[in-house]
Design a protein around this nucleic acid. Structure first.
Lengths: 208, 208, 208, 208
DNA sequence: GCGTAAACGAGACGGTACGTCGGGTCTTTAA
DNA sequence: TTAAAGACCCGACGTACCGTCTCGTTTACGC
């Protein structure tokens, strides 16, 4: 290995400090109360250094989140759809809990308020998560665990919809009981009817 | 008619102008870009008049939304669960679309960023909507359309989860096709297994 | 006297505090080291309040200076040119000294660096001061103390040039000895030759 | 030829580029708008290279100015005070004009704002210029052209005061007409009364 | 019809944070 | 050792809104 770019290299120390401060402050004060100025100050870093690498607070938090997610185990592969799905949802529910819940809620909020960030969040984060679950389901289909008629996209959407609703509405806990109930729900939909969407045509008498 | 409070009464003209300006600006610039100052200016009203009656921008928008919703028809009552549900979801999907989608997304975002508003939004808005759908389902149960084992709370939660996910993630349209698919999904879950949640105990071998 | 403009009136307290802070900080730290932020902080005032009324630091300091100058006595009128002039220059020299020297030097510097401020400083301040001295000289001319040939504009320019050079170059003190010497110089120029400028044509042999 | 210091020698190319860029940018944007960063960028040089050799922007500009002045002819020596003085002032007035005026004004401004630079500017530049004119006058005195009583220091001060005032106040042009008027003025003061300063005691009746 | 009193417009106020600029320093690779 | 490149900490810039305040004005009601 030889030469790199000229100039002083980016400080990994500063990067770490910024990410860590963003996490700490978000969990202490809530996403909405955190400011870039406070992150920089807490990290012992100049504002300019933050703005050089991230365009918004949301981008910092997203990177922090992805960093954590990178340490997570790969897709479960137990050989059976039910156990794969149960394992995946339990793990995902755990990952949506306490140290991350405020981050996730904050990011979804930021995505609604900032068009630019919203676009990247939807494409790089939300879509990617759905895609992962789809892969799990398609693998099951290849094994014969999932009927041809089952709509994997819709099932994945429904799973994350339920998760996000609990993250955002907070009316019920995100626990393993919820994960298991969701597992059963998805299995039911997958097996009983095949694809649920449009499986039953609307009554002709029913107006839009 | 008896005595009112002394002093000049609240100006309905100002109230209307504020609500209308909030709606207009949100749809023009997006919720995140609207400021109270801009609303007041657009409405030809002083900032103080806004703050006298609403604590936050979110409160104004929420009132605007509720005002629109008040004009909506009551719960459908066709005598059958399927048509009731289909009608309800179609109507709700329509209400979550264009003139309101930005408002809803903005309010959900605000609820994540502002603890105080978030509490009232969850209790007064989200819970209330779920409650409405629960009533529809319970009425069906009283008619014998819904098995005793079916978990109305969970079904209602799932319905709104799916709706909100499309509002927030915007990866797929909120159209009647979606409403009908959701209807079928809910009916499947309601009828096939009774209540899906905890209907099937997790395998003992499966760790949390 | 009746109605004023609508809205909350400008706070005289804030105005005073800003002016006073600007003076205090300039004399403590030097014009170049003073920042608008520091002025606002020292005055217990928000930055916005400063920017609402003054475009630059220089404008604040100029107003402070004019405020002091406003308390100064009117043009001397002793009936004789010599004593009028001597009195005027002594007083001006005093006014250019310690509490004001840093202000004047800073303003002249700012006028060189900021085109916009420079224009107003030259027209509203420098020209006005020369004009004042011209009036003194013209009054003397009306009394017969100043020859018709004397160039009042040039004499006034020379007087302020000498003053400003001592303010800026600081190689010699601004004392009454200097004021008197300058008085004599101007009287010499006024009386001996009439107007000094162009009194003697340049030798034709002398190239430009 | 023997050994020089070890390591890479200073780049004359870089020095030239920096000086030239400083001049070009000052004349294009005005002294106050020029930044060291812009100079370095324009010169195709790193900031560090600038800071290695000059402490401030003013120092660069001063060096640029001295470089130009070095090409100027020596003190005029025609054998007569009047023609020497006229020639000197005409040449000085020319040198204070267009390509240099902004530089001079900027340097005088910088001298007021930066104590350190101000000290060196006053001693190395302003005093040196006065000294040069004094030499011219003293040479005339040695020839008998200047009365013993004439105060050469004061005359030199007055000459440069008038010049600087036109540079800074910009109310009148710096042309040869001005140079000649100033020449006449100084000659008048030199010959008529001997030294003007303190030649005439202030009236005892005149208070300070 | 006249005083009391609240709401209204206008707009200045003390704040907080924004995102940018430039200062001067430091750390890398290349010459 | 100098140079180009460029990241770093720092301080200030000027702006945008926040939510509050103080004015003069307007519009109701109760006496």
């Amino acid at each position: 290995m030889v030469n790199r770019r000229p100039g002083r290299p980016r400080s990994e120390i500063a990067r770490r400090a910024i990410i860590d401060s963003a996490l700490a402050l978000t969990n202490r004060d809530g996403y909405g109360r955190v400011t870039i100025e406070a992150i920089a100050h807490e990290a012992g870093v100049s504002k300019q250094t933050v703005y050089r690498w991230w365009p918004t607070k949301a981008a910092i938090v997203l990177e922090a989140l992805n960093e954590r997610a990178a340490q997570i185990a790969p897709l479960p592969d137990t050989g059976a759809l039910e156990s794969d799905l149960r394992r995946f949802l339990r793990r995902t529910v755990v990952g949506a809990n306490t140290p991350n819940r405020l981050l996730l809620a904050g990011l979804m909020a930021a995505a609604q308020l900032d068009e630019t960030f919203g676009d990247s969040f939807r494409e790089d984060f939300l879509a990617h998560r759905r895609e992962t679950l789809c892969q799990l389901l398609e693998r099951a289909r290849a094994r014969g665990d999932l009927p041809d008629a089952a709509n994997a996209d819709f099932l994945a959407e429904l799973a994350f919809a339920a998760l996000w609703y609990r993250i955002l509405a907070r009316h019920q806990p995100l626990d393993s009981r919820f994960a298991d109930g969701l597992t059963d729900t998805l299995l039911t939909l997958a097996t009983v009817h095949g694809t649920p969407v449009r499986s039953r045509p609307p009554s002709a008498a029913e107006p839009a």
